[in-house]
Design a protein around this nucleic acid. Sequence first.
RNA 1: UCCCGGGUAGCUCAGUCGGCAGAGCAGGUGGCUGUUAACCACCCUGUCGGGGGUUCGAAUCCCUCCCCGGGAGCCA
Length: 460
Amino acid sequence: MERLTIKEALKEDYIGQKITVCGWIRTRRESKGFVFIVLSDGSAQETMQLVISGVLSAKNYIHRCNTGAAIKATGVLRESPAKGQQYEMDVSDIEVFGESDQDLYPLQKKGHTFEFLREIGHLRARTNTFGAIFRIRNILADSVHQFFRERGFVWVHTPIITSGDCEGAGELFTVTSLDFSNLPRSGDASVDFSRDFFGRKTYLTVSGQLEAEFLAMSLGKVYTFGPTFRAENSNTTRHLSEFWMVEPEMAFADLSDDMKLAEDFIRFLCARVLEGGENELAFLEAHYKRISREEIRRLAETEFIHIPYTDAIRELQNAPVIFEFPVSWGSDLQSEHEKYLTDEVMKGPVIVTDYPKELKAFYMRMNDDGKTVAAMDVLAPRIGEIIGGSQREERLSVLKDRMREMRIPMESLQWYLDLRRFGSAPHAGFGLGFERLVQYLTGMVNIRDVIPCPRAPGNI
RNA sequence: UCCCGGGUAGCUCAGUCGGCAGAGCAGGUGGCUGUUAACCACCCUGUCGGGGGUUCGAAUCCCUCCCCGGGAGCCA
């Protein structure tokens, strides 16, 4: 089908030329001599105004051109004589591919609530807000690969089905092919997973980190970018049951290398989204006023503030505000504490480092003080934690001690310990919740609005 | 999972003390010579979330379940 996308067509080059565009009708306005149609095809934030006048408007098919209908329009592109758009098409021919019953089509010209749009997930991408979000999501996903490719990282594909029941990252979804109406039982009446598909109990992955570690310990610098699953019963604006995570892992790197990578990464993504998503960001900024291009530009240019956990606690204890949860060394930072640090004190992202070992996973490297580990969390304003990372414990005996302390079963992780037995080396990495980043940069309030098909408890 | 707030027309919401089910928008029809969430007139629209109870009478009061939103926890 010979046609231009609206993104391609809205250029000076085509003025005076006869072109064809396809798309879905956003709105139609009629007056006696004219019909105005706003057409969108998803290629850009901009829409094409179609002007139908005179003889053509009398043709009966124009009545089939309702909100939501898919059409092909051919005509001459010209500068618009009216305010509101730079160019418009003087339509000479229209073909209707698919009509849209106005009594049933749920999208109106007027704005809808996000709650309502979530109920019609298959149609919400046709709105200008969701079009903008999903195009920005694409720019960011593309930029993730670009960033790591430019720095010599290997994109590795870690498994989605795992046997790992000891990664300590929350509740897991069980994967099984057992017949639920006839479950095999062991002697004690529990389900006998040795007769399941893989011969043992399996789960959807909660993180590709452990696998990324063995790949980093052979390929040097690697990253994963793929779906991740948590069966936590979390009902918040910043959790999903299925989300995408970016997890770089570097051999011969320590915590400061890790932090530098995380910072460079976020700054790079900000710069790229400003470049490629200018119109989308401008639209979201104008409509929702949650984040500005100026703020993203600042983010792309400024160094993040680093603060050790111990200093952060002191800062919070001296804060001239009353927190609901008390602040004390050894307790985790609550949402309100994180928000105070990012929104009030630093007015931007903050990297908190060196948390008490009790608050963090078994694989994080023990610091010399014996009390804290080489961990770092990147906290973003409004959203909270978007990155969690650490230098990994490379010393076999220290790691084994930690696993015993935290009652991590060692049998199934012998391969992980092997990495410390054979050519162990300092290494570090982090995990970034991709949707949280999209959420932060688009200013969306609810994380369910930055992924096409959000998965959440009781909601599929 | 816990704590709040909600569920009334396709959408957003009002509905007083328990007494006839409402508005704006959308949609339909007509009008209007350039509209921008167009405008003007008329018309159409209901399992008041489900079930049970109190009452002469329930959208309204009580019980219960479901769903949605916000916050918290868990985390990315």
